[in-house]
Design a protein around this nucleic acid. Sequence first.
DNA 1: TGCCAGGCCGGGT
DNA 2: ACCCGGCATGGC
Length: 218
Amino acid sequence: MTKGERIRAMYEALFDRFGPQGWWPGDSGLECIIGAILTQNTAWSNVEKAITNLKREGLISVERLHETPVGRLAPLIRSSGYFNQKAKKIKHFIAFLVERYDGSLEEMFGEDTASLRRELLGINGIGPETADSILLYAGGKPTFVVDAYTVRILQRHGLVPESTTYEEVQDAVIASLPEDPKLFNEYHALLVRVGKERCKKRSPVCEGCPLEGDPHNV
DNA sequence: TGCCAGGCCGGGT
DNA sequence: ACCCGGCATGGC
């Protein structure tokens, strides 16, 4: 099998083993974007509490967030860690959205995907993973989100070099599969799922990834 | 008790 | 172009 075929086989194996992960079901686009920022290097369980607070205050709204000072936003998202930084990041995104797209996500996602990605990367606090999460999970665009688990798992399976880059990993996955946002959504979620369970940072190998070849068998 | 979590930025080499 | 310290809470 080529590496591309193995990347595809890994997806099939993960999906067969774990099924659909249902990431960000029923969330509004804005809530999804806020979640993408808040979960930077942070456990999702800590993010949920922050989102709950924002909902309770009626702040999952472009207008409300735009008029809310960072000083009032920060304590509400305390549980998500780096809360002062992340409060600013949310405000930066909202300012961009209001100024560039009149506060309309629909208008923003009407932009050409490659151009929009560059625009998002220009916002302070939005890097490649957050930009791609926004495009894929909030906008339904066919891009693949690379995170620490993705890199670690693909490296341990010899599917990308030990020393690699975000773009290289992303290209490897995108080139191996049909360009389907639903599929990219599921693959990323599955890698996070299996990464948390079995591909620990400390451990030198994935402890039982559902891919052919010892020591990665279930 | 430390280590880790769905990163990113700014300053230094 | 890389490398590193800082940012911070909560769970195991």
